[in-house]
Write a protein that binds this DNA or RNA. Structure first.
Length: 160
DNA sequence: GCCAACGTTGGC
DNA sequence: GCCAACGTTGGC
């Protein structure tokens, strides 16, 4: 992994959530929440590399339509995701050990809700966003990095 | 509800 | 370590 030359430099991300499970409205109501339930190693590694102050595009997947609906800020570094140890949780992982947890969660805080959802269609139509991973064929990662320019452009399109 | 794409599992 | 089978994701 590349070492960060400037520890104060913000990083930018896109995180997916199904609105039926946890929506931007839920986050606005709660103020902050633990972003847990990630069960993909690549996405987990992105969670681990998040720093306090990093900015997140909040994306509704399986939405109507799907798209980025707001932003959030990282306020807590990766910590063990407690749902992996809960047999009643969908995210339970019997192979994960408490002394060496497999899955982690970060704490995020509501920042903004867009005036207009930035749909996948809108993002596809924008040349500046053509490199976004979420627009690439077959991408299913629930957490992906975005560039500062992509972040700014999506926020601009969202009008918040 | 369909199905393409991808990750994981497990037999060998 | 290969790879077929299976499960999941998520746009449409």
């Amino acid at each position: 992994m590349a070492r960060r030359t400037n520890v104060d430099a913000e990083q930018f991300w896109l995180a997916k959530s199904e609105p039926d499970v946890y929506s931007i409205s839920d986050l606005r109501r709660d103020g902050s929440t633990l972003w847990d339930g990630v069960r993909n190693y690549q996405a987990r590694n992105f969670l681990r590399s998040m720093q306090v102050g990093d900015q997140i595009l909040f994306h509704h997947s399986n939405g109507d339509p799907s798209g980025v609906v707001g932003t959030a800020t990282v306020v807590g570094l990766a910590q063990p995701d407690s749902t992996q140890f809960d047999p009643r949780s969908e995210g339970f992982d019997g192979a994960s050990k408490r002394e060496d947890p497999r899955w982690c969660a970060v704490k995020v805080r509501f920042k903004s809700r867009f005036v207009v959802p930035v749909t996948l269609q809108m993002m596809r139509a924008d040349r500046a966003l053509s490199g976004m991973r979420i627009l690439q064929r077959g991408n299913r990662l629930s957490v992906t990095p975005v560039t500062a320019a992509e972040f700014a452009r999506v926020v601009e399109l969202g009008g918040s």
